[in-house]
Design a protein around this nucleic acid. Structure first.
Lengths: 214, 214
DNA sequence: CTTAAAGTTAAACAAACGTTTGATTAGGAT
DNA sequence: ATCCTAATCAAACGTTTGTTTAACTTTAAG
């Protein structure tokens, strides 16, 4: 009566267990404050398995960042390009991204928290993804927008602005939950996305989804 | 010819030297990745002086956060309250805050990077400041805005959004500098502030300072 | 059955960690 | 002169850090 490979709960891939534990812990204690022993214990594996699968602790971080950022970039490619005018495409992009951030909130927190730190190995990784994102935003948003309005917003400014705007809710959640318990659930993910769509497209006067002139 | 207390360069307060070194290092390597020895060496003091003046390493962080957040809150009190309609007050607030973030960019990076981490001692500190900020934003922005438009944006959503929007440039600077060297200087602080004012007040169509209908 | 690879383990490594100690100095007040 | 206190220092405290080693077990194919 011993299941060999049919059950998933008790005998999941050790590699995957480590990854999940790392996402959980890095987001809560930070990368540097999370020890290998704590990580191994939380994943239910021996400490040396981290080195075996990922080479080093930093290897785990790189994998988390790559996985999260590639997903974010894929959404940008899919939603910002393609058919529709600028407003429509921006709205699609925001709704999709907020959904993605919502599901991947721990990875999002890790990516943004580690953003400003200057470990050259990590900075280079992030710069690679950022470079592609800037290219897409420039081609699909900044230039069409400049053609419409005559005003050019550099993508090196707009990309960070859009990203952190959509991320703000998840970055501040731990603090805001202390400020006003339950405040995370008062606004649903869909309402939050609409709020950002309104803000980006029409400013604070349009922060609800009422779009009268399309 | 020996100056006693007139000169400031060679014999500055050790306490202040530690504080300045900590702001510099915490912003670049992160709080947990910065060691006491590195901090003491960078400040040019003995390692035990950190404990002597601040109690612990975490004591230094708390002082940095308190100093930065109290300044931010003071700006909010000064610019969001007072005379003028909502748009005018928001514009004043954004211009002032961007100036403040620009000068205090290292402290800003520290505050946001440590935001999501769950050290109870630190979370409580941040929650105290956030609670006051939410109160001000609610009274001076959200409620007047609801009276005008009929749409209520919760301050627990709006405060984080405004904050990270103005901070985005400094959070991403290390990465964006790698993506496009010199991109930090292509947009001046004043232009950056105008960009955000336009975005917040009129959306992406108004991201330059051209305000035709006041 | 044998063999080779992949997975897993406990143990050990030097290095670095944050903090504390006790001695020493200097300056002003008593 | 004596005392007090703030400031500074070198040295050591006991832990914990990330990583590595070598032996052991399991898995799967020849």
């Amino acid at each position: 009566m011993k299941n060999k490979s049919d059950n998933k709960e008790p005998k999941m891939d050790s590699r995957e267990r480590i990854l999940q534990a790392a996402v959980f812990l890095f987001a809560r204690h930070g990368f540097d404050a999370t020890g290998m022993r704590e990580l191994a214990a939380h994943a239910g594996v021996n400490i040396s398995m981290v080195g075996y699968f990922f080479g080093s602790k930093k290897g785990v971080l790189k994998e988390i960042l790559d996985s999260f950022l590639s997903g974010y970039l894929a959404i940008a490619r899919e939603e910002l390009a393609g058919a529709g005018d600028l407003h429509t495409r921006l709205e699609r992009f925001i709704v999709s991204t907020v959904g993605y951030f919502d599901v991947q909130r721990d990875s999002l927190i890790i990516a943004i928290s580690e953003l400003p730190h200057d470990d050259p190995e990590i900075v280079e990784h992030k710069a690679g993804w950022a470079r592609q994102m800037v290219g897409i935003v420039n081609r699909e948003v900044c230039q069409p927008h400049a053609a419409e309005t005559g005003k050019y917003i550099p993508p090196t400014s707009l990309s960070p602005m859009l990203t952190v705007l959509m991320a703000s809710r998840y970055l501040f959640a731990p603090v805001m939950e202390k400020v006003e318990p339950g405040s995370s659930e008062t606004v649903s993910r869909e309402e939050y996305a609409k709020m950002i769509v309104g803000l980006v497209l029409q400013g604070i006067t349009g922060s609800e989804s009422r779009v009268t002139k399309s």
